[in-house]
């Protein structure tokens, strides 16, 4: 079972899926930095002076790390960085969900769909589950490439 999970065939495909997700999400946010800054501010977790810098850099970090993972360049580090980002996203959503504050995910930039608070809270739960799934993909890459670090 562990051998199949660590197979290169599977790992390459997992790399592709995880990389594609982050590249698409990053590009959507790069298209509208003020909109993403707005979403970050809504979370209420980042100090005001840092909101803009985060809105400018985070999408590019997603894209660059995603491209590196897709091309297999420093893929363990790329998978780790994306894993750390996913843990941060899950924590940010969970904190707001715990306190009952509905926020738009902002994962793919600004949502133009009109939503009720109940819709947002439901969506937050789904996004947390999705991010846990993506975190498992990052974990598969790290598991399959663990020998690379020892080499």
């Amino acid at each position: 079972m562990s051998g199949r999970l660590a197979s290169e065939w599977l790992t390459v495909r997992v790399q592709f899926v995880l990389a594609a997700f982050f590249v698409v999400a990053g590009l959507a946010k790069i298209a509208d930095p003020p909109g993403f800054a707005h979403e970050i501010h809504n979370y209420g977790l980042v100090p005001g002076p840092l909101v803009n810098a985060m809105a400018l850099v985070l999408p590019w970090l997603e894209v660059i790390t995603g491209v590196a993972l897709f091309l297999g360049i420093a893929r363990r580090s790329a998978a780790r960085v994306l894993g750390i980002l996913l843990i941060v996203f899950i924590a940010a959503l969970s904190i707001n969900l715990w306190s009952g504050k509905p926020v738009d995910c902002g994962c793919f930039g600004v949502s133009t769909v009109q939503k009720t608070d109940a819709d947002r809270l439901k969506e937050m739960k789904l996004v947390i589950l999705r991010d846990i799934g993506l975190l498992l993909l990052a974990g598969q890459i790290l598991h399959a490439t663990r020998r690379e670090e020892r080499a």
């Binding site: 509208d32 930095p33 003020p34 800054a37 005001g48 002076p49 840092l50 909101v51 810098a53 400018l56």
Partner: peptide
């Protein structure tokens, strides 16, 4: 689309 690096 531009942002100031330091938000206010």
């Amino acid at each position: 689309r531009r942002l100031k690096w330091i938000g206010s």
